[in-house]
Design a protein around this nucleic acid. Structure first.
Length: 484
RNA sequence: GGCGCCAUAGCCAAGCGGUAAGGCACGGGUUUGCAAAACCCUGAUCGGCGGUUCGAAUCCGCCUGGCGCCUCCA
């Protein structure tokens, strides 16, 4: 095992600086990541966010923290109601299906499941209680069945997004609702319109506003105080700003969350990808092609706070790179058995076991230094590639498998910390065709033995056309299914 | 109009004061019956102009070009 020693530093959107991680409880991290509003299929922006926070969580756990990871579903809102109406189904039916799909897709992405997945519709009690508290302490008011948050009552409003209330007003893109005391006030509770799903409340039937559910759920599931509060950069304003206003006004203390962490947004064609712009790629399109791992690597090769420019070319480049890592991580490359020769003994050629152990130690150190520094995954990944090169070179130069093994294991271990599984592709992916491919290659082996090059090459070319890559080695032919 | 971010080799992308990580692609090799895979070699002075400094891609100013938020959004 590795023995990381440094302190983890995290960039905090609130202070705009990297800060050493100091958790509320030693050895424990309370992490709240804003989940989705399930009204449509997940796109790759959700995939990026999921991957980013999965890696953060995995790394924290790797460093010994017990992470309580809460991720919500905001399963009631205008868009859900509109979509359900359009499809002629109940909103619950819509969200149930999409939430099930979400779980399936994030599992394929190899994201660890959250500790808890609370849903807004199942937390109405705590939500109502919080709104009542905000009215009681003067931070909210009711108007005709709606309840609004009084933005001017919270002096710190704007501290997360760096905004000034008067500047916001001059933005002038806020709809004027004469019933609100201030145009910037936002809804905590919306009175039900005819035909809409609703819950009973002291202000009549209605439903929660957009931001209050996260305040209530983080309070309920993380005892009102959060270590890491995360989400996409597009949530900084107004969502997280409003969450702070609600939670800190309600709890009467601050900070409600210590570290605000935001991932950069996926760009497509030079601009932000989003459902509202209509320029999105569904996550499923990538997963169905078996490129989930490549997607993860693509995300990891950029910094989590920087925007990620998504292109098909970039995804395939990641898949190629992943292939190299997989080759190095393969315990029995090209059919070679990984014999149990002790490291450092009688190495006839190539780097010695000691060389490889040193390379593994260097990779380990580089990896942890990078990840400790605000989860600098691209640098950590570079350490993986460096180690992979050392492993492949050693094999090429004749270092015995046993001497290579420690470095190979280190590669698999570190990749695993990032959620990258480096299993070889060979067995899966071809389904029932596997035995037939084996048979063809057996025949081809006979042809090659007889130097029937034209025929044997034809078999190889035809298989390539079917997406099966054949490689000849000293130990015979191996094959794998190409992804992409 | 307000707030903020970015501009690094063909593409993607780290670095954030001491003389440019990594990935993909391209080209040249080694290996191979030929391939593939793997390995080796090869490429940038960091958008432009000034300034600070012994020293700047890294700090400051201006310019140009992108982008995000201010409205639902991971």
């Amino acid at each position: 095992m590795s023995a990381p020693a440094g302190t983890i530093h995290i960039y905090n959107t609130l202070t705009r600086r990297k800060e050493p991680l100091a958790t509320i409880e030693p050895g424990r991290v309370r992490m709240y990541v804003c989940g989705v509003t399930p009204y449509d299929a997940a796109h790759i922006g959700h995939g990026m966010s999921t991957t980013v926070f999965d890696v953060i969580r995995r790394y924290l756990e790797h460093r010994g923290y017990a992470v309580r990871h809460v991720q919500n579903f905001t399963d009631i809102d205008d868009k859900i109601i509109a979509r359900a109406n359009a499809e002629g189904i109940d909103p619950n039916e819509l969200t149930e299906g999409l939430i099930a799909q979400w779980h399936a897709e994030t599992a394929v992405l190899n994201a660890l499941p959250a500790t808890v997945y609370p849903r807004a519709t199942q937390e109405v009690g705590p939500i109502v209680a919080m709104i009542e508290g905000l009215i009681a302490n003067g931070h909210a008011y009711e108007v005709e069945g709606d309840v609004y948050y009084k933005v001017r009552s919270f002096p710190d409003y704007g501290k997360l997004s760096g905004r000034d209330l008067d500047d916001l007003l001059s933005g002038a893109r806020i709809e004027v609702d004469e019933r609100k005391a201030d145009p910037l006030d936002f809804a905590l509770w919306k009175a039900a319109k005819p035909g809409e799903p609703s819950w009973q409340s002291p202000w009549g039937p209605g439903r929660p506003g957009w931001h209050i559910e996260c305040s209530a759920m983080s309070s309920t599931y993380l005892d009102g105080e959060v270590d890491i509060h995360g989400g996409g950069a597009d949530l900084i304003f107004p969502h997280h700003e409003n969450e702070i206003a609600q939670s800190e006004a309600f709890l009467g203390r601050q900070p409600f969350a210590r570290y605000w962490v935001h991932n950069g947004l996926v760009r497509l064609g030079g601009e932000k990808m989003s459902k509202s712009l209509g320029n999105f790629v569904r996550l499923r399109e990538i997963l169905d092609r078996g490129l989930g791992p490549a997607f993860r690597l693509m995300v990891l090769q950029g910094h989590y706070r920087a925007p990620l420019t998504y292109t098909e070319e970039g995804l395939l480049a990641a898949e190629r790179g992943l292939g190299r890592l997989r080759a190095a991580a393969d315990p029995a490359p090209n059919g070679l058995p990984s014999d149990p020769v002790p490291p450092g003994l009688g190495t006839p050629a190539g780097p010695t076991g000691a060389d490889l152990e040193q390379a593994a130690a260097e990779a380990d150190r580089g990896f942890h230094e990078a990840m400790d520094d605000d989860f600098n995954a691209p640098v950590a990944v570079a350490a993986l590639f460096d180690l992979a090169r050392v492993v492949n070179r050693a094999r090429a130069e004749g270092t015995p498998p046993g001497a290579v093994e420690p470095a190979r294991r280190k590669l698999v271990e570190l990749a695993g910390v990032l959620g990258l599984t480096l299993d070889p592709l060979t067995p899966d992916g071809a389904g029932d065709a596997g035995p037939f491919v084996d048979l063809l290659l057996k025949v081809r082996g006979e042809l090659r033995a007889a130097k029937q090059w034209a025929l044997s090459d034809m078999i190889r070319d035809e298989l390539a056309g079917l997406g099966i890559a054949v490689e000849d080695t000293a130990q015979g032919a191996s094959w794998e299914r190409r992804r992409g």
